[in-house]
Design a protein around this nucleic acid. Structure first.
Lengths: 128, 128
DNA sequence: ATTGACCCTCCACTTACTGGAACCCCTATG
DNA sequence: CATAGGGGTTCCAGTAAGTGGAGGGTCAAT
């Protein structure tokens, strides 16, 4: 596969894929003409990184997750602990988002069209 | 209040508060000695921005949300629509995080300690 | 008078890309 | 055979949203 095919199948822009090569995530072979040549294996790695990145994991997190993904000895307590930590972070993010959701939907449902200057929802939003 | 008090009460670093002044979120008065002098009002705005930023809203989103927060005519359909759009984005993020959560917790629960080379969870992780 | 905790500005660096310029390669068509 | 298009390549610059540090002023207390 050339980079364009990988871009399409992974959902990542070609630019990003080149960047991921720069920072050492993948090491595609080169065709005689200098084009990058990708195996399925690289495609899977890229798709995985793409999923993790879109969920707010940093590149460093992705390195860890990839190690988890690739480590043949993934039974180790270390690796399990890393995954558990990531789960905790996900849960915290979900909780935060739900709280924000409540606030915003109150704002939408209860404040709209109301011109009172002392709207309790607005007070809540800016509380310290 | 000086910047340090605001930092403590809002949970934002002083650096970030100065940056938020640079980009026009707040316009604190200056004391004769050149120190920034903050009102409660600024503190509330900063706390609000901090909450929104921590949930993944961009600075531009924050400008919109602040407009919502401050607009005396917030009954307008435009403003409501913006808030609804933000709600949709929050819901999408929650859904994505939940999906990632499922994947990761499978990895933790079912793959650990198992050395089979064809682990179905790992296959799932890298699917395209 | 000096110490320590604050505050100031300005500049550089960071992360994770993204855009653009300038150029090469491959295939198809007039 | 030329040339047009749609790939691909490198490299350099810029973005968002801060963060770190240098170098220096201010204030309250000892």
């Amino acid at each position: 596969m050339n980079i364009g095919d990988v871009a399409e199948r992974s959902g990542l822009p070609s630019k990003t894929i080149r960047y991921y090569e720069d920072i050492g995530f993948i090491k595609p072979k080169r065709s005689p003409n200098g084009y990058r040549h990708f195996e399925e294996r690289e495609l899977h790695k890229l798709a995985f990184i793409g999923r993790a990145r879109s969920l707010g994991f940093t590149i460093e997190d992705c390195r860890t997750l990839l190690a988890l993904y690739e480590d043949k000895d993934r039974a180790s307590a270390d690796v399990k602990e890393i995954a558990r930590q990531n789960l905790k972070e996900i849960d915290a993010k979900i909780a935060d988002l739900k709280a924000m959701r409540v606030t915003l939907s109150h704002l939408v449902d209860e404040c709209a069209g109301d011109h009172r200057p002392d709207c309790p929802i607005l007070k809540d939003l800016g509380r310290v």
